[in-house]
Design a protein around this nucleic acid. Structure first.
Lengths: 218, 218
DNA sequence: ATGTAACGTAACTTATTTGTAACATACACC
DNA sequence: GGTGTATGTTACAAATAAGTTACGTTACAT
């Protein structure tokens, strides 16, 4: 497992690196935002980030929301001050955990283990003859790979991430097309669903009229 | 969502109960192990437990491993002392989180929200032979799926979300037709209720003359 | 440069859903 | 018991959401 440490205090880095390596983690560390962004953009495989909020060239919150959240890497925030507001903000932003300095190394280790165990969930979702491989972001029909377009894949991913739960059309619109400035027509969703169903062959996508769509796990 | 508070300090119970209730949680509290076991054995629906480790008649760790873990209820431990060993022990036992007193109420709330979001379990509301699956937005009569139209579904959802409480006709009008610009006739509500009752077969919808409608949980 | 794939829109189709109107019944109050 | 209001019932034409197909445009790879 690879852990990235972002922290400007060299003493802390040294101590943590040692402790983590003793526990068989591979550790990389960066001491500012700039280096971290450069590092992240080289697309390394990272399983968890320990991120100090106060850094010399910016703050960890922004780094998190701009670069980390979309990649869905579990993150533990660290702060020097015990500030209630920051803790709440960090957790609500989507951090997995939040610790304040001085913290116990053993506690941090326990929390890291916990998070990594939790996230080691099933990465293969199977419904009827369709298998969604979350690691490889691949969809199989039987043993054959389906060739889905990026948007089709995203929509199916969204549906598979919400098995047994309705995903609203508006949610699909928001989540799939949020980044583009384009306002996309509501009908577009319909068309993509049609295309998906066509490629999937098996009809595993249930329409919930007036709301959206759903895939049921058996 | 139901939260159980196990804590012998009445002041903390009062403060937390208030804060949690303000956030639309239903809160029960127990002040010792004995009462908690009795309560748990009556099998109430509990979504999360906040558990003080030091209690007058025993310790929370034992309670957790003997009664809570097997039921798989997410648990947050609390302790007075900031003892590294206890935190690590608690987390490794399978607790979802661990806070030390004095803690910030807002932080606890944020952590509770986080856990409950993560663990979202299936929510089924059952009245007589009708089951409302809030996740799937699916209504079953016995084991057969009822096919409801969007508006019928919304109205039934509203009624099921207010079990044992009267939902006013005006509330229905407002909530169901707010988004459409259309002013809809009051009679329309009546017609939909008729249609719902017809499809449900079982008469679980009670008319409260002059006010509206109600579904009673048994 | 060229061909292919992906994208979003538009136009069309369908079955269903919807709201209203018209009439029937229940209930409360005088 | 009569009267008026609130709710129940039925039937129907209009409206709509979703399914479908086709096409021009853009992006991309070869």
């Amino acid at each position: 497992m690879h852990i990235l440490l972002v922290e400007d205090n060299i003493t802390i880095i040294k101590g943590l690196s040692y402790a983590l390596e003793m526990n068989n983690y591979e550790v990389d560390s960066k001491i500012n935002i700039k280096d971290t962004i450069a590092y992240l953009e080289s697309n390394p495989l990272i399983d968890l980030i320990v991120l100090d909020v106060t850094l010399p060239d910016g703050n960890g919150f922004d780094l998190f929301s701009n670069y980390i959240k979309k990649r869905n890497i579990p993150t533990i925030f660290l702060t020097a001050k015990d500030s209630e507001e920051m803790i709440v903000k960090g957790l609500n932003m989507g951090a997995e955990d939040y610790l304040t300095k001085p913290f116990s190394t053993k506690e941090l280790l326990a929390r890291i283990n916990k998070i990594l165990l939790r996230n080691q969930r099933v990465q293969l979702l199977k419904v009827k003859d369709i298998t969604f491989d979350l690691d490889k972001m691949l969809v199989l029909k039987g043993s054959a790979t389906l060739s889905l377009t990026p948007i089709e894949l995203k929509i199916l991913h969204l549906l598979f991430s919400n098995l047994n739960r309705v995903v609203r059309r508006t949610t699909i619109l928001d989540k799939i097309w949020e980044w583009t400035g384009n306002d996309v027509d509501d009908h577009t969703v319909t068309v993509y669903l049609k295309r998906l169903r066509e490629k999937l062959g098996t009809d595993i996508i249930v329409t919930v009229k007036g709301l959206g769509y759903r895939i049921d796990a058996e």
